[in-house]
Write a protein that binds this DNA or RNA. Structure first.
Lengths: 332, 332
DNA sequence: ATGGTCCCTGAAAACGGTTACTGCAACGTT
DNA sequence: AACGTTGCAGTAACCGTTTTCAGGGACCAT
């Protein structure tokens, strides 16, 4: 394993041609006579020659790969997002770099260092500071994924306002009065917007909104914790609006585990419409966002080159309210 | 955005030193006098200079990143696996390339092409053909992840034999006679070994095993389909052994949705012990494998260099039987 | 003073590709 | 027959680093 790979010059020597010809044949550019092409192709085939990406990168002054930065791989949302991104990038013949920031102290520095490895970086909202993103974009094209566009930095995101429609549905159509919100608005742009849409819907319906959200993360386990905080006391909310499906499913498990009826005792809603949401009993009312498309669109933007004249600077993808049983609606 | 980055030579010119000195300072090697170091450091700081990875890669003859190849990002297993891999690689200061093969026709060729981009590749079992892996290892270090070691190619995997213990538990301790197996043994080495351990346990207990497994994929939706195939007919099995937790959870949902009692009417078991398995009602009996560790171990092997004298050639990680309610055991 | 170490620094040669430029046939035109 | 095209192949420069090697001071011991 790990035999030294042959170089253009060696292939050229073997085929008794110049390196220029080998290069032309291997990348299919320029004029090469049929017999030359044939000869070189045979040698390439025979020795399994593949041009080294590092030499090529240097000559072409591009790495041939792009990166995606996200908080961590927990749950179906990020899986789907990255799938969408990855597929699109591989399709375009480029490489995919990933980096999860978790809550590493060195996250910002690590992301900055990434800039010297790739041709473009997609940064998921809520992973690194705005200053870092600005700094980053000084050396490499950047796209904000599920975040707000910045000066010269385009964004790809979903329309979070649908959670306003959802809240309105709970308040007006179902007549619920006491709602709770699970999610940390400071954690990411998405959650900020969802919390604000939740508040706005309360104002529109002239119903008092909760003073504070239940500030927790976006994982299922956070939902289970939220259930503990919300459902045990006497002042249980009539409906729990969760920032995403994962937490909603956690709350659902917590509610059912306490012997509560959903939606009879408490209604629960989510955001994303992950596969599990249509499988659980009762089906989860949620907002569908095109997660895969978010990733794919981001990839396309990054690859086609950011910031050209007339380039997309803010792609807001449509979302859709999905009514199932958990809000109190009965399926047809 | 995208300002041209400065090169060593430019930095050298500005700081009025040679490129060699800049390089020595920026990477902290060799002897440099304090005042020189100070001067260069200031210029580097001032202009935000970062050595280009492509120049560096060429000079050092290593890309500084490794890749992981897997079928797709569906479900918690792959998320966890990749997290483990990614964390370890980033820790070591290298970059992480990913590639999902899905069932692309070009998968083998794509993986082969990866070899010119990275210093090492972890290939998940069941993604590309053995010949491709062999070919790959001729040019770049390879580690099989959740697969069998090949000549000169080390493997990192979990001990699948625990599913034999599990099967024995169902046959002997619970006395179930009619078992079914959900999973496609041809799909991946892991499933092959689990099916074989399942069969071996039947032989040991002198109980007739099912002739065929229910050949389906490893996603939750496959479990839901399996439930349809297994639970509707008259000859319903007493217990369903699934190749992983995802499908087990799908079967569980299908069973509960049909009004069947689990484990009363049908027992269900999985493999992996994903977080969800301890949250569902009833809790899922399964085999715990250290998924994150698998990824991390693979990364370490890849980074420390494959195939040196005395290097690990086959790391089999321990697994553990986790008895919960879904097999018929009552929790203490 | 002389020679020998030690430190530092810089010039230049890699590393593996791509490509602008040059040169040379062969061919067609007047 | 002289000349301009055209098509194809090769030479060499370049991409941005790292690193070997050599040279030049400063210092010390004789």
């Amino acid at each position: 394993m790990g035999n030294r790979r042959l170089t253009v010059r060696e292939i050229a020597k073997i085929a008794e041609v110049s390196v220029a010809t080998v290069s032309r044949v291997s990348r299919g550019t320029g004029q090469v006579s049929p017999e030359m092409r044939e000869r070189v192709l045979r040698v390439i085939e025979e020795h399994g020659y593949q041009p080294s990406q590092m030499g090529r990168a240097l000559a072409e002054r591009k790495h041939g790969s792009v990166a995606i930065v996200f908080p961590g791989l927990s749950g179906p949302y990020f899986s789907e997002l990255i799938q969408g991104f990855e597929s699109e990038v591989v399709e375009a013949g480029a490489g995919v770099h990933i980096m999860a920031t978790h809550n590493r102290a060195t996250a910002d520095a690590d992301v900055l260092a990434l800039a010297s490895r790739v041709d473009g970086i997609a940064v998921h909202g809520g992973t690194v500071s705005t200053e870092t993103v600005q700094q980053l974009s000084a050396t490499v094209p950047v796209v904000m994924l599920a975040g707000w566009p910045l000066d010269g930095i385009p964004a790809v995101r979903a329309d979070n306002s649908a959670i306003g429609k959802l809240t309105r549905h709970l308040l007006v159509d179902h007549g619920y009065r006491k709602l709770a919100f699970v999610g940390n608005p400071g954690g990411s742009p998405d959650v900020t917007e969802r919390w604000e849409a939740f508040l706005a819907a309360h104002r529109d319906a002239r119903v008092a909104a909760p003073r504070n959200p239940v500030r927790l993360g976006l994982q299922q386990s956070d939902g289970v914790i939220a259930a503990g905080e919300l459902l045990d006391g006497r002042s249980r909310p009539r409906a729990v609006v969760c920032a995403n499906d994962e937490t909603a499913l956690g709350v659902l498990i917590g509610a059912l585990g306490r012997g509560l009826s959903v939606p009879g005792d408490v209604a629960i809603t989510g955001f994303d419409d992950v596969p599990m949401s249509s499988l659980v009993q009762p089906g989860l009312t949620t907002v569908r966002q095109p997660i895969r498309e978010l990733g794919a669109t981001t990839a396309r933007l990054l690859i086609s080159g950011v910031g050209g004249r007339g380039a997309v600077m803010d792609a807001v993808l449509a979302t859709e309210l999905v009514l199932r049983d958990s809000c109190g609606c009965v399926r047809a």
